[in-house]
């Protein structure tokens, strides 16, 4: 088997195993009565806590802020209405955008409040979401490496 393909399989395995661990940890929460939320983050020093909370909080705020900005732009943008002949269905995007603004605003407030009171879930949920996205991307690339054609284009073979 060519070396790139082996590494492709390794990337897929890596992503799958870590995702598996993550799912397993969720079953622990529900089946074994472990209450993560009672983990006392207050005992951590400020530096230790914010070393974890600041990057996770910032990334989460960027994502939530982007969501709010999308909703707000759809609500606020003023454009000429489309030609009536080509309108096939009613556009509910402004209503959806309004709810998106409300939801993202609420999530943002919750996140900031959660970090402020040092709640476990305020860090755990965004951290899990970030990990899932990264692992998903690693899995995707791994699959692409496995399935990609292994023959080089002619000009690359010559060089």
């Amino acid at each position: 088997m060519p070396r790139p393909r082996i590494f492709g399989y390794l990337a897929v395995l890596f992503a799958l195993i870590l995702t598996g661990f993550f799912i397993y940890s969720l079953t622990l929460v529900f089946n074994e009565n472990i209450t993560f939320s009672q983990i006392d983050l207050q005992q951590l020093s400020n530096f230790t806590f914010y070393a974890i909370a600041a990057p996770i909080g910032l990334v989460s705020m960027v994502v939530i802020g982007t969501g709010f900005w999308i909703g707000w732009t759809i609500l606020a943008i003023k454009v000429v209405p489309p030609m009536p002949e080509i309108v096939e269905k009613k556009d509910f995007s402004k209503i959806k955008a309004f709810f998106m603004c409300i939801i993202t605003l609420a999530l943002g407030v919750l996140l900031i409040y959660g970090i402020y009171i040092r709640n476990f879930w305020a860090l755990a949920i965004p951290a899990a979401a970030i990990c899932i996205v990264i692992l998903g991307a690693v899995f995707w690339v791994g699959i692409a490496i496995i399935t990609t054609r292994s023959t080089l284009p002619e000009e690359k073979q010559k060089s």
């Binding site: 556009d91 509910f92 995007s93 955008a97």
Partner: peptide
């Protein structure tokens, strides 16, 4: 783009 019929 927003002038044309589109969805959310």
């Amino acid at each position: 783009w927003f002038e044309y019929p589109s969805d959310f």
